Simulated scan of single mutants.
Amino acid sequence: MALDVQASPLFVAGDLPPVSVVNPGGASPFLFIGDHAGNVIPLSLGTLGLDDAERVRHIAWDIGVAGLGERLATAMDAVFVRQTYSRLVVDCNRRHDAPDAIAPVSDGTVVPGNADLSDTDRAARFAAIHEPYQAAIAAEIARRSAVGQPTVLIALHSFTPVFGGVARPWQIGVLHDGGDPSFAQAMLAVLRREADLTVGDNEPYRMDLIDYTVPRHAYPAGLPYAELEVRQDLIADTAGQAAWAERLERVLTAALG
């Protein structure tokens, strides 16, 4: 997807486009999206005041999702729409007015570059990153609809194994709420047949009014969907991503029926 990053005051020469589409035109009914797939920070924002270690932690992105989504797109001839920039710059799975859309603190880490932002600063981040990403998803759904290609929207996320000092027992969770949750429920049923898995139903997070992307695109159109949360230690490297892509290809296909 070609976007002119220089049209935004947030970006300078050398910045990457805010969204990329992997395997455009893929024939699969599955449309994969990655709200937090990237951890890049626009050059004009420096490091947001964070050191290298903080910028690769779970606070900055969904670890493993980029590689997992790309493998699924290749294996299933599916489209994967993925975000480039860190959720600390702007969270593409939040509404414009959400308090944590540009978080000043995340999991105990203060983000100096997000302190005391003006309304203009906040609007620039949304216009440069959030809106093009959401527009790319809408455009892909519209393209598919125009040619009679069905869409099952699959949001790929990952979660940290320990949060707030508490270990999380699930390997994967399936999130769902409004709209048509039938596919998410079918995913749960198939995953629960995997003897080696502890599967979360709206765990470790619950899909609710905090979520933005799936409710925006799936609910009004009645699209089947699932928001998947895979534990980050399982997909942190290429071997784990390959194994989980193979598993999810099988589970997704079985759930579709």
Rank of each mutant, 00 (worst) to 15 (best):
M1P: 08
A2E: 14
L3R: 13
S8E: 08
P17W: 08
N23T: 02
P24W: 13
P24Y: 12
G25S: 10
H36P: 04
G38Q: 03
G38W: 04
V40G: 08
V40M: 13
P42S: 10
L43F: 13
S44A: 15
L45R: 07
G46Q: 08
A53K: 11
G64K: 07
V65E: 07
V65H: 07
A75V: 13
M76D: 02
V79D: 07
V79C: 09
V81Y: 03
T84L: 05
Y85D: 03
Y85S: 04
R87N: 03
V90G: 03
D91K: 04
A101C: 12
A103P: 09
S106I: 11
D107Y: 09
G108Y: 00
T109L: 14
T109V: 15
V111H: 02
N114D: 05
D121E: 15
D121F: 06
A128P: 02
I129L: 08
I129E: 00
I129G: 01
P132L: 01
I137S: 04
A138G: 15
A139N: 10
R144I: 06
A146D: 15
V152E: 06
H157N: 10
T160S: 14
T160M: 11
P161S: 09
F163S: 13
R168L: 11
R168W: 08
P169D: 11
P169E: 13
Q171N: 11
Q171M: 10
I172A: 09
V174P: 06
G179R: 07
P181I: 06
S182R: 14
F183D: 00
Q185Y: 12
V190Q: 14
R192T: 08
R193G: 15
R193W: 09
A195N: 10
D201L: 11
D201V: 08
E203M: 12
R206G: 10
I210F: 11
D211I: 03
V214H: 00
P215M: 03
A218T: 00
A221S: 12
G222P: 03
L223E: 05
A226G: 05
E229H: 13
E229M: 14
D233L: 04
I235D: 04
T238V: 14
R247P: 03
L252F: 00
L256N: 03
